[in-house]
Nucleic acid binder design. Structure first.
Length: 463
RNA sequence: CGGGGCGUGGCGCAGCCUGGUAGCGCGCGUGUUUUGGGUACACGAGGCCGCCGGUUCGAGUCCGGCCGCCCCGACCA
């Protein structure tokens, strides 16, 4: 059998003895020599902020028009990982996943009054019959319409629905790469409750889900009171994650650093737990530039300051949409009631940039384990060397698609630099020095710590 | 939308003021070299100089229009 045929066998499918399941559905063959991951030594002129620069340099995305990006294989994997964490935490509090279209008819937006109110940020389109359509910037009207078609009784409430879908807002000035693009991937959820008291519970539940979501991504998130809008009631919060290069200054109480939001500490089924949680989240001081109050800040015992990036926003808006769109359900006494609603967004694509802002150094990205495109990179420092090739292939096979194999015929320095740039949490360096005796070097990207270990020890540690 | 700037091989840039055969670095290909942190040398491929029009014997360069992109501000997931 020729070498090419052997290689084909290697590539033909999931090999046995996998170390851990891939976070992805399929088993992708990820040899760098056959991967569209165009890393750049120099920074493209258009990129200003660090996350944008690194996303371009690490080959995660490419811009195709102002504020519109193509997601290349590595970037796409990160996006999917973030999306999956968001999904799991939404599911965990009982929200139902669905999928609404990107293109909507103008008609519904006329009913809610937002067709004119939204302004030029909304991308308006005409179809071949000259019907007015739009590329959805959000989905309140649509979900309200869908809900009213089928839900008729208070017995069916409460409900919470969400989808993860591309949105378009025709920003006057897109910038910061995917952090402020025109096209963006967003998780938006909508809650329907019979009354205000119910809506408050939904709101708190979602706040809990958000705290857990961001915590899983390895970042500290702080809910900050936002403009409460016409409804009031103190129920509008922005979620800011801390990053040294964040867009705005934030002031907060160190108490946020100690909060336990695990299911063991707070049950989303228990209104009492939720209330305690909500109180905890909203009584300590936390503010961005606009809302910062020096007088109140003075009273904070343990002060913390930093920079932050908004990655989520939740708000309660009562019957703002249910009323004009005619959504009512029969109450227990038979009279129609307009449900109280809330909506809850997470900027999924924005998070890719935001996480890079939070986790990087001069050499490149330092992905948190939970969202990294690959758990590890295998750096074969001497492609063609029998021992290096054998060990590299062996490791690669065991990772079952969750490792990127740098099988390029490049110099060691190039591979190190690219691996650091791309930010895989672990690097497994297979060089002729150690390979002969079955040893590899294991490097932890986040800390820079390295150790030379046996192959099995390396796999066990990363496992 | 107000203000500013930039479009020249894949990336970063020079050339434009003062019109005359399109250049540099990186990257890419081949060879030698090197062999654990972006090695060195040689040779080579690659550019309707954003688009349209004008001036001129001649336009990357001057003039007009258009398009695209970036930055600051206002606005925003």
């Amino acid at each position: 059998m020729c070498i090419a045929a052997l290689l084909c066998l290697w590539r033909s499918g999931p090999p046995p003895g996998r170390v851990r399941a891939s976070r992805h559905a399929g088993w992708n063959d990820m040899r760098l020599s056959r991967t569209l991951a165009p890393t750049l030594k120099e920074t493209p002129a258009e990129a200003q902020i660090v996350s944008h620069r690194l996303m371009l340099r690490a080959g995660l995305v490419r811009q195709t028009a102002a504020g519109i990006y193509a997601w290349l294989p590595l970037g796409f994997r990160v996006l999917k990982n973030i999306e999956q964490i968001v999904r799991e935490e939404q599911d965990a509090i009982g929200a139902q996943e669905m999928l609404m279209p990107t293109i909507q008819a103008a008609e519904l937006w006329r009913q809610s009054g937002r067709y004119d109110a939204y302004g030029p940020e909304m991308l308006r389109i005409k179809d071949r019959h000259d019907r007015e359509m739009l590329y959805g910037p959000t989905n309140e009207e649509m979900i309200t319409d869908l809900f009213r078609q089928s839900v008729k009784s208070y017995r069916e409430l409460p409900q919470m629905l969400y989808h993860i879908q591309w949105k378009f807002r025709d920003e006057v000035r897109p910038r910061f790469g995917v952090m402020r693009g025109r096209e963006f991937l967003m998780k938006d959820a909508y809650s329907f409750d019979l009354d205000y008291a119910g809506a408050v519970i939904s709101y708190r539940r979602m706040m809990l889900a958000y705290m857990r979501t961001f915590q899983r991504m390895g970042v500290k998130a702080i809910p900050m009171e936002a403009e409460s809008g016409p409804i009031g009631g103190n129920l509008s919060h922005e979620f800011i994650i801390l990053a040294p290069t964040g867009e705005s200054q934030v002031w907060y109480d160190a108490a946020f650093e100690r909060m336990d939001v695990s299911p063991a500490a707070v049950s989303h089924h228990s209104p009492a737990d939720l209330e305690r949680f909500f109180t905890e989240m909203t009584t300590h001081y936390a503010a961005t530039d606009e809302k910062h109050d020096p007088a109140l800040w003075e009273k904070v015992q343990e002060k913390r300051e930093g920079r932050g990036i908004e990655v989520g926003h939740i708000f309660y808006f009562g019957t703002k949409y249910s009323s004009p769109l005619g959504l009512t359900v029969a109450g227990s006494d038979g009279t129609p009631v307009a449900p109280h609603m809330g909506s809850y967004g997470v900027g999924v694509s924005r998070l890719v940039g935001a996480l890079i802002e939070a986790f990087h150094d001069d050499a490149g990205i330092k992905w948190p384990d939970a969202v990294a495109p690959f758990r590890a990179a295998i750096l074969n420092l001497k492609v063609g060397d029998a021992a290096c090739d054998r060990i590299s292939e062996e490791i690669y096979a065991k990772f079952a698609g969750d490792a990127l194999y740098d099988d390029r015929e490049e110099r060691a320095g190039v591979k190190f630099a690219d691996a650091d740039l791309m930010g895989h949490p672990w690097q497994i360096v297979v060089g002729p020095r150690g390979a002969a005796s079955g040893r590899v070097e294991l490097k932890r990207r986040a800390t820079g710590e390295r150790q030379e270990v046996d192959l099995d020890a390396a796999l066990a540690q990363i496992g």
